[in-house]
Design a protein around this nucleic acid. Structure first.
Lengths: 248, 248
DNA sequence: ATAAAACCGGCATAAACCGGCATAAATGTA
DNA sequence: TACATTTATGCCGGTTTATGCCGGTTTTAT
């Protein structure tokens, strides 16, 4: 077995399982522990995986790890502030779930008077602190993990709504693949939300840019704007601008 | 299982449920109590969570939770425990809002499998920690102060429901005037809930006994049982017993 | 007040890590 | 072809890490 082959195999396993353990690899590849360790070390130096004691983790899993980092006040705050300016008096606004959206609510002007519609329980709870606005929760069956409403009743209620704008906390966005999600039911909900609004705005921290998940929410062409922590004319947003997406 | 994986899992759980318990984690991750403790300790040092006795809280929401958890009179706990025994496997249960109901949820057996229906946002959020059961939220327009759904859509949805039991956190109850409320809209919601269930059970701390508020929820004769912190045969409940209400 | 549960510090151990060295195969060069 | 160089791999020792266990203490709940 050639070194390159081993490397390819390791990366393949990593793509499938999001993790590999040295012990497992050295048996299946029939090489010594040291060789595996060196392999992982090299791949880690090339940035193709994250080395940890006893094995390695895929880069994407590490994203979710750092995404869980509660301490991202800077970027998320920036995004939330910029996105908050999009909400004007009298608007009907659809909100998804997620910590960025929650942060956005904190940045709404207290005297603002808008109508907020959301399928997310924590977001609904947060919105109730906002005195000026009306809050409408949609859906009835609740998804425990995502803490949002799902199912047919939600779609039925959304069908009778034409919101001014839909603000989505985004898991993954790509200038070609559009907005994607890693859970089917959540993707379905967001898909319905996009269809119920005249404009779709994606709130995405830069590390979510150019990433793709299995389930599509909407095509890139359906996204009207994307809000990141970057300046509007940042080079790293070029692909989105040329896809006709406004960058804020 | 690699250490980093556990950490990622813990943070993920934390983002979902806003809290984790060591005991729960050590079973699901199949490691010793010590390892979990060390994991939580390390994550706490990195500032990714708040360590508390027996588990950890999410950094973002711990204040809301602990604030509500701190204020728990002993009586409410007693009531919640007794009321929790009324919920059996397979039941469809309507729940109102209120801290007593929330406490009740904590006392549900984890392996219980029931369907809970509620118009209260905090209660819905709390219910999502209960793995075994299905959670349905009803209504869409939200009342900011009471944090429950109100309005016509709620009534419409309730009309198509026949629950086994309706558990009401009660503001005022009297053996003659029945259950009453101090806000019209909330009273309307609870009235609809009573009509949508075969049985109505009132959870009332003793200080609420024999008090009357302006807006009626239901007549005394419509109440099947009342749960207080008293013993079932306590003298002070005599009036309710003779009104045909079961005292628990 | 008392018992159960959670916490802490320390210890033990097995697994994983590291650096260096040796060997052998592959590659390059005269 | 013969010799030197590089590369890949395995092996060895000493070190670090991860984890479980244990005794004693604190916190929580009844």
């Amino acid at each position: 077995m050639l070194k390159k082959e081993r490397h390819a195999f390791i990366l393949q396993q990593l793509n499938i399982h999001n993790r590999v353990m040295s012990n497992d690899l050295l048996q299946r590849l029939a090489v010594s522990e040291d060789t595996i360790r060196r392999d992982l070390q090299e791949l880690a130096e090339e940035g193709k995986l994250i080395k940890v004691h006893g094995g390695a983790l895929s880069r994407s899993l590490h994203f979710t790890l750092s995404a869980n980092d509660i301490y991202l006040p800077k970027e998320k705050k920036t995004i939330a502030q910029k996105a908050a300016t999009l909400v004007q008096d009298g608007m009907v606004v659809l909100l998804s779930g997620g910590t960025t959206i929650r942060e956005l609510i904190h940045h709404l002007a207290p005297e603002l008077s808008a109508t907020f519609i959301t399928p997310s329980v924590p977001i609904a709870l947060e919105l109730m602190n906002h005195t000026g606005s009306e809050v409408i929760f949609i859906g009835n069956r609740l998804h425990k993990v995502a803490q949002i409403a799902i199912g047919a009743e939600l779609t039925r209620q959304l069908a009778s709504i034409q919101a001014d704008v839909c603000l989505l906390g985004t898991n993954a966005i790509d200038s070609k693949a559009g907005i994607t999600e890693n859970e089917w039911e959540v993707a379905e909900v967001k898909k319905s939300m996009c269809q119920a609004a005249r404009q779709v705005v994606a709130l995405a921290i830069s590390e979510k840019l150019n990433t793709v998940q299995p389930f599509q929410v909407c095509k890139a062409s359906a996204v009207h704007a994307v809000v990141t922590e970057f300046e509007p004319h940042d080079e790293r947003l070029a692909a989105y601008r040329s896809a006709g997406i406004q960058c804020i």
